[in-house]
Design a protein around this nucleic acid. Structure first.
Lengths: 217, 217
DNA sequence: ATGTATGGAGAGTAGGACTATCCGAGTTGG
DNA sequence: CCAACTCGGATAGTCCTACTCTCCATACAT
């Protein structure tokens, strides 16, 4: 198929498709003549994956490109692809160096130790966790920070199920795609469910008035 | 204090402070003369809160303004503030109408029913959950979608602890600030810990090679 | 044959988050 | 008391991201 049909089938404008091609998110079609290319179902799939990562998962175009490059690269292990996807999802902050950070670092290190996690400070989550804890500390959110173990326990369960569900010795490319969509979209799903659970928990405690949400006001 | 000292104390440039004032994130200082204003500790606190929401929590300036408006508005209940914070964190997608969406809607509704959650479709999380599930469905992520109950169970536990920790009949403003920081920063913390837990779980299953993360490449 | 679609490249646009520049009015150190 | 600095407020400019538009020389469709 040519670009027009690809556009129709995926509901992505021709201009956007060209943009993704230029940015290297979508591999070029096969040229049948110097200025005529053919696209196939793989392009349709890829385009849908891009939309899912960007629209639903909230990745930037650059983040999506990195993740997709890992999917395409035969050299990249499933384990490394997982890290790549995490990198793309996590917002990086430049490190500060104060008391709050020192305390936060200690809290994270102790938690990891306590739970026996096999992870290291090079994991992007580690730094982010420290940053968040430090911010909570600075702002008097110690009550929330005190839930570190509750959060960690919940994520431990989630991660075990996810890894078990996603990893499966099939064709490598499909498996990596699953890992990547799992990391990115799973994160969005977790955030969504947390919102619902929170409303529910608050309602239980207050006999809940009108439901929150529904846009601006 | 005047703007220069406010800037020094918070490490936020004078230009940015002026910008936040213009955008209504930071209340104006008290004018001692037509062109001289005084700021106080409340401004310092507020500025730190803004930075935490934006830098760590990943809110946009507009999102932070909405959330802070809820904190400031005496009329807004704690329960409503919670919804406001969720709105700010959640990425809104315009709805599609296909089979995948229909299936996703059913799955979410059944899950809510099964768990007896007090929440409704007006909760921004509900729509997001449907969108994510639909995207997973479209992309062959049914394995991840099958974890819906695992995710929901984990978030149920988390939400109960959070609501209990955060709500506390003290001064309303502080309490609402805690709810808001809890929602926003708690979400970032959860994402970070999930990343770490996932690395750990993957390592357990593979004898883990080099740790992922550490930036580009 | 003639009108529409295509590939590729470059320029243009809209929104977001600052950052820089001005200016007339305080404030401060010598 | 005066020069140098700082301030508040407003406007304009910058950089980035994610597109979107415009061209043009083919290619395809009828």
């Amino acid at each position: 198929m040519r670009i027009g049909e690809l556009s129709r089938r995926t509901d992505v404008s021709v201009a956007s498709i060209k943009y993704y091609l230029r940015e290297g998110l979508l591999p070029p079609g096969e040229l049948s003549s110097p200025n005529q290319a053919q696209y196939d179902d793989a392009h349709v799939r890829r385009l849908r994956l891009i939309r899912a990562l960007v629209d639903v998962g909230g990745l930037t175009i650059a983040g999506a490109r990195d993740v997709l490059a890992a999917v395409d690269d035969e050299q990249v292990s499933l384990y490394a692809a997982l890290g790549r996807a995490q990198d793309a999802v996590m917002t990086r902050t430049e490190p500060v160096d104060d008391d709050a950070t020192a305390r936060a670092e200690k809290a994270v290190a102790e938690m990891v130790e306590r739970r026996g996690w096999t992870t290291s400070e090079t994991n992007p989550g580690w730094r982010t966790a420290v940053d968040v804890l430090a911010a909570l500390d600075r702002h008097g959110g110690e009550r929330v920070a005190g839930l570190l173990d509750v959060y960690a326990g919940a994520m431990e369960t989630v991660a075990e199920h996810e890894v078990a569900a996603v990893v499966d010795t099939e064709q490598r490319e499909r498996s990596i795609e699953r890992v990547v969509t799992g990391i990115v979209l799973g994160g969005a799903l977790i955030a969504a469910l947390r919102g619902m659970a929170e409303q529910s928990a608050a309602a239980a405690r207050y006999g809940g008035g009108a439901a929150p949400g529904g846009g601006a006001v």
